[in-house]
């Protein structure tokens, strides 16, 4: 029997017996392992969850009216002055957040590429059976996590152009952040795209929060359903999704600000 030799696999006894050739010591390999990539995903993800909570709190200021909301937006820029420069806090948050996003995406891509290879796909197929394609207990959220991440990334680009950078302004431009929000969310497709994005965020969080804590070693329950982390994931997901959907819904359906 002929077995192909490769640089990374040692083949012996002329049979299919083979073993990987490693050059780095185990400690270094463990530091670069998939588990460490998962720690990176977890920590960067939890930083973003923390940011989402702060962001959501800011959004809810819409209910304080135009003055309250615009004042809050202004205060974010002057926070900590004169100890911090103008927009100092915002820039700190932006740098931390950008680092988290870069690390999160980098780890996700590295893992996804590796996982795809590891699962032994050949010509796009792993198992030829058409039965039980959805496995035993995998959920919609875990199935779509990677694609959901892409949806969220695209949404964030559009969202930054719309409400942060003010480059695109559906419904009319304004210097007042409050008016920009109200003008935008009075339009059906702006509202709809926001709802879709929040659903993607919700699915991502529901599995992501559980997964982050588990990756960091915090799960002590035998089953996922029995884990307190599942309850935590549910609560945080619902709080964040509902919290984010309240202001646009109030604007679109109940005429807030018009």
């Amino acid at each position: 029997m002929k077995v192909s030799l490769s640089r990374t696999w040692r083949v012996s006894k002329g049979l299919a017996y083979r073993e990987p050739v490693v050059t780095l010591p185990a400690l270094k390999r463990a530091r670069r392992s998939t588990v460490v990539l998962k720690y990176t995903m977890a920590v960067s993800g939890l930083i973003m969850v923390g940011y989402l909570l702060l962001h959501m709190y800011g959004n809810l200021k819409v209910f304080a009216g135009q003055d309250g909301f615009d004042e809050y937006a202004h205060h974010l820029r002057t926070f900590g002055e004169p100890m911090l420069p103008h927009e100092g806090l915002l820039w700190i948050v932006r740098v931390v957040l950008l680092a988290a996003v870069v690390l999160h995406v980098y780890s996700a891509v590295r893992l996804a590429v590796r996982d795809r290879k590891a699962a032994g796909y050949k010509n796009g197929t792993r198992y030829h059976s058409k039965q039980n394609r959805r496995g035993v207990q995998r959920s919609y959220a875990t199935f779509t996590l990677r694609w959901g991440g892409l949806v969220i990334a695209l949404f964030i680009v559009y969202h930054l152009l719309h409400l942060t950078g003010n480059q695109i302004h559906p419904g009319g431009a304004s210097d007042s952040p409050y008016e920009r929000v109200v003008n935008g969310f009075e339009i059906w497709w702006v509202y709809l795209s926001y709802v879709v994005a929040m659903l993607a965020v919700g699915f991502h969080l529901w599995h992501g929060i559980w997964s982050a804590f588990t990756s960091l070693g915090q799960n002590r329950a035998d089953t996922r359903r029995g884990s307190r982390l599942t309850a935590l994931a549910w609560v945080l997901t619902l709080v964040i999704v509902v919290g984010f959907l309240l202001p646009p819904t109030a604007i679109f359906f109940f005429g807030l600000g018009s």
């Binding site: 392992s33 998939t34 998962k38 893992l111 590891a118 995998r138 997964s211 588990t214 990756s215 089953t223």
Partner: peptide
């Protein structure tokens, strides 16, 4: 450390905590 290093050297994938 050694077992995780070997797990990865063998070409297994990473865990996504889905419990399948």
């Amino acid at each position: 450390i050694n077992m995780v290093a070997q797990h990865d050297a063998e070409g297994f994938g990473g865990c996504t905590n889905i419990g399948e």
